[in-house]
């Protein structure tokens, strides 16, 4: 079967943005200022679990990759997270009034979703794992909107808490351009292109399922 032209392939990847979690009702409410401090904290605390597993996910992609030039580039993601990124996240945790102990246990649904993502990257070829990381294509605008909305709606959050997003936004733009090129270069057959698109859908579903779990916890708590 014929492979897609490069532009058609990257368009198909970009089209998965329809499924990105910025459209989740909870995220829409969070950005519109409709969340209580407890709900913001639930989001931050659970999002931390995702954050805390990112380096293991990235290490799995590196471990499965036979190409030195890709590994040396991808390893920068480990240093970004492990030499500052995680600390910046803990600053956000503090800025919303949580302690590290309070974020130790994620919601079950969040744990299942995130663990499935790490397992996906361990079990699949590196290029399919890399394709799953392409939610970054949709992340910079979402993150920029988040910072703007939170500053406007949740003035009780300490300004220091935004360091992670401020540092990550330029990096993620750069990373996503690189990764899109990489996936387009290495997915040369229709088989791999379809698998890459499916991987990105899967990743969108991981983020969506996390948010479902967070929303469910917030709504249940509100009702009791």
């Amino acid at each position: 079967m014929q492979a897609l032209e490069r532009a058609a392939f990257t368009d198909a990847l970009l089209a998965q943005g329809e499924r990105y979690w910025d459209r989740h009702p909870f995220n829409v409410r969070l950005h519109a200022g409709g969340c209580t401090p407890a709900e913001v904290r639930t989001w931050v605390a659970n999002r931390w679990y995702y954050q805390s597993r990112l380096s293991q996910k990235n290490a799995a992609i590196i471990a499965n990759c036979p190409l030195p030039q890709v590994r040396t580039r991808w390893v920068q993601r480990l240093s970004f997270q492990d030499e500052g990124g995680l600390d910046d996240w803990l600053v956000l945790v503090k800025a919303v009034g949580l302690t590290p102990e309070q974020i130790a246990e994620p919601l079950l649904g969040v744990r299942f979703a995130v663990d499935a993502y790490v397992q996906f990257c361990k079990a699949n070829s590196w290029i399919i794992g890399a394709a799953a990381a392409l939610t970054e294509l949709f992340a910079p605008d979402h993150m920029a909107d988040r910072v703007k909305a939170w500053r406007a709606h949740y003035p009780w959050i300490d300004e220091a808490g935004y360091a992670y997003f401020e540092n990550r936004i330029p990096v993620v733009r750069n990373d996503s351009d690189y990764t899109l090129g990489l996936v387009a270069d290495h997915c040369a057959t229709r088989q791999d292109q379809d698998a890459a698109i499916a991987a990105l859908r899967f990743k969108c579903d991981v983020l969506w399922a996390m948010t479902d779990a967070i929303e469910h916890a917030c709504l249940t708590r509100a009702a009791t």
Binding site: N124, S125, C187, A188, T189, D192
Partner: peptide, 13 residues
């Protein structure tokens, strides 16, 4: 029946 499949380049290798 697992659903994970190797990519083309890995099969060629």
């Amino acid at each position: 029946l697992g659903t994970v499949e190797l990519d083309t380049a890995t099969w060629l290798r």
